[in-house]
Amino acid sequence: MKTKKISLIFQWILIGFMVLVACFPLYLVVINAFKTHAAIVENPLSFPVDIYWENFAKAWRTGSFGTGFLNSIRLTVVTTLIVLIASVPAGYVLGMKKFKGMRAVQVYFLMAMTVPVQLFLFPLYATLSRLGLIGNIYAVCFIIAAMNLPLAVMLMRTFFMKVPVQLEESARLDGANTMQMLRYVVIPVVRPGLITVSVLTVLNSWNEYLISTTFLQGQENFTVMLGYLALNGGSVTFDQGMKMAGALMIIGPVLVFFLALQQHFVDGLTNGAVKE
């Protein structure tokens, strides 16, 4: 009995330690966002004594967060829309229909899932620069959408496979055409899939770095991530307080979004990797 109690305490110590590891860097961001640089240099672990709000205004100005947030929202919304518009019909066909060549399409998307960005990045850059599309946010949306599509298609497929076939057949007998079928019969059943795919795509495109830093040249095209990077570069930027305030402003919306929809996020992560 006693060993069981000791083991239980030991388990909680391990869990507590990992909670600390996960939260400690964020704790540093939160407390230091409200301190002056001098106060941070003195002790980065202490709570702020005088709340120093100026950090937020400084970060907002220096990192051009105004345009940055607008561009990030635009990029995220457009990318997610493209992914949904393309993955829903594809997932429907792959999940509910049978025809020759379907297997090949499936294998193609599975393979596209593990292709490294670098395998297509450089010719894509050459092509877009020839077309004068460097700095064009919609071109970037298109590329990021293509990177998110394979997983989205495969996820939508698994959700469509859950739609009972009888439901579709009876609707078909009532004379519904394919578009009506999708709208009134199928979509309501796969709504959780739509949310899961959207949540994953929103987070991926909001957090995206490699494609945006390559293609979104020119300060006016920067996403908030690139603005934040610029704030960390330059010469004025020894100011730790400002950097932490900037980080907090970017983390905030993501955390709210994640906490509100975390179950769908977890579903999306586990769906592909765990066989049921």
Binding site: L226, Y228, Q240
Partner: peptide
């Protein structure tokens, strides 16, 4: 709740995470 806490680092942007470690740690 623990699953949620542990996942927070996973949903943060690489740009932000990298700058946090580089600067404050």
């Amino acid at each position: 709740i623990l699953q949620m806490i542990f996942l927070i680092p996973y949903v943060l942007a690489p740009v932000v995470t990298a700058m946090i470690f580089k600067n404050i740690i």
